[in-house]
Design a protein around this nucleic acid. Structure first.
Lengths: 341, 341
DNA sequence: CGATTCTTTCAAAGCGCTTTGGATGCACAG
DNA sequence: CTGTGCATCCAAAGCGCTTTGAAAGAATCG
């Protein structure tokens, strides 16, 4: 069933039917109703391709998911972000186009989006140091919003980010207040902007209290349970074990907990843990009192907001950068206690 | 840059340029080279919409992600599946279209895919008991492949599934061999096909050895860490605590481990745990010896295979159902031991 | 009642591509 | 030299929609 067939059935021109369905005022209410009911009855829906060819808007947003060759990890945060963004897309009639590519081909993916005209805009995930994507997209003239931001270059484009620095500064501050002086940081890979800023916050808090960061207690890596376990175990076995851990993800924190209990210690009594919590739907920091003390910021909400900002750029054509910095909440859980004396 | 402009530059007709780029034989090698280099030089890529309007194929595969209103969980398995499927799509020139919708609108999403002609086929995720989607898609005539299969209706459509029943039968058998008679099952929601089959496998193994399944030791629910923790804790505190746990996901198993250690017990010594492991990239059952004894089957590989099967259906137009049943491997880890006597 | 305006409808062009059904030129055989 | 076959290339139609510019019909007004 296409427009022509439908209009033939109705005895109307394609113009009128199209206008009736798209809510244009040049059509009488009576015929509009007639057209709409006929469309529903015959299960008519305009062909997306034809529509976007005619309008020049593709009504789709692109996301590029890089698959790194070496460490084959998919970002666990991704599914919740997508869920948030996708909800907004659906509400606004946009499709979501995912492009899964080897990370070396990432730039090409964005170029393709632009030259093939397959999307009206893109979301940029996981900005890194020296990330070429922002410049590329500005050159291509493709509307975009970054989830996060660039380490050294935060102007001239739209982003939605949480305040990684202040959030880790506060988390570190909390541990310092509890008397900890030997605080380990299990961070993400420190080419990622969020990891760079978190470390900066952590170090700033320590230095502000006259504590010198201990390189042996700072690690960076893929944020898995095993990473948390492995590194925490090594540190706990060392001559000067940390009394508290600050971790960049919930999964790392779970690994740290395993290491703690394997050492015969108890989390929240012998050793403290504070983690960042992306509030992922399948990794809820649940219970009446949260398991972990955590700085929390919902990735799903970030997805929603990024989508809204991008759609607004596309709809209005307004290119002036829109930037939002969210403060994470610091939630007290069962994993923190005063430092052993 | 579009076809017309490119062909004007080249002094050739659009026909010839199109044919040169699409590898048709009616064009001389000399001009083909000329066209190809010019296309690359000017960064020409055919407009997707125009192309698929002309060809009738949209070169996109649809995935519907339902967001349930009540329990707002996004399937953690999803991102790895997508990564696998997306890799195959990219290699074959297909786009991936994601539709995130409230679960009540799920059917409508598939209808839209069909009537709007936005995709050439779809992947069906997480088949359930009485799932209307298979019938709907058959009626719509839209090519599809199910990841998993229907509980009572496994014929007449394509699917790629792992043998949930045999895998849980074997896992249960392993625990029985180790002397356990009090084996708990922490399953997923038992409207999901995989959960139904896993329970069947578990019960079959018990009954085959003359052990009566204990309803108090069987639970079903959202597969989170907290769910595993909560239920394992309750069972361990009961009068007749299980000596072994069988869990449907890695996250549940992590929760069970927490409950075990909170009871002052040690996993793999006092209490055994066997889990199913989807081999998710961010939840690796890592280490030299895996932490958990597990039945393992890669969701990412399943994504790849589903994509291949679907693309084959689309390309060849062959509608004969293709069905694959994979056996999971049973990996011995550190979480199992003989039953306490 | 005729002129004017507004409302409602339509025919046709155009979006950028593919593809059908010719054309054109050339080599070769008769 | 003419006809045949083949290799190249092209003009134009068509995919299903939107949208411009115009026309027809209804309503308003002096």
């Amino acid at each position: 069933m296409n427009l022509k067939q439908l209009s033939d059935i109705l005895g109307l021109s394609q113009t009128t039917v199209s206008r009736a369905l798209n809510g244009y005022p040049e059509v009488s209410e009576k015929t509009r109703i007639k057209v709409q009911t006929a469309a529903k009855a015959h299960g008519y829906a305009p062909n997306t391709k034809a529509k976007s060819l005619a309008t020049g808007r593709s009504m789709a947003i692109g996301h590029v998911i890089p698959l790194s060759q070496n460490h084959e990890m998919v970002n666990p945060v991704f599914s919740d972000f997508i869920a948030g963004a996708g909800e907004i897309y659906s509400e606004n009639g946009y499709d979501m186009l995912l492009s899964v590519v080897k990370d070396v081909d990432e730039s090409q993916s964005y170029r393709n989006f632009a030259s093939k005209r397959s999307v009206d805009g893109v979301i940029v995930h996981g900005p890194r140091a020296n990330d070429p994507r922002v410049k590329l997209l500005l050159d291509l003239g493709l509307p975009f919003v970054v989830h996060g931001r660039m380490p050294n270059d935060t102007d001239g484009y739209s982003w939605v980010d949480m305040n990684n620095k202040s959030s880790f500064e506060r988390a570190t501050g909390l541990l310092l207040d509890l008397g900890h002086r030997n605080i380990a940081l299990l961070n993400g890979v420190e080419v990622m902007d969020f990891a760079i800023r978190r470390r900066a916050g952590y170090e700033a808090a320590l230095i502000a209290r006259g504590v010198t960061p201990n390189p042996a207690h700072i690690t960076a890596g893929d944020m898995t349970e095993h990473y948390g376990y492995q590194n925490a175990l090594e540190m706990l076995r060392s001559a000067t074990p940390p009394t508290a851990f600050l971790t960049s993800s919930y999964l790392i924190a779970i690994g740290v907990r395993r290491a703690i209990s394997e050492m015969g210690l108890t989390m929240g009594r012998d050793v403290s843990v504070v983690t960042h919590d992306d509030d992922l739907s399948y990794l809820r920091n649940g219970g009446n009192i949260p398991l972990f003390t955590a700085s929390r910021s919902s990735v799903r909400d970030a997805g929603k907001r990024c989508a809204e900002v991008l759609i607004n750029h596309i709809k209005t054509g307004d290119k002036t950068p829109h930037q939002e910095l969210w403060e994470a909440e610091l939630m007290l859980g069962e994993s923190t206690c005063t430092a052993p004396t």
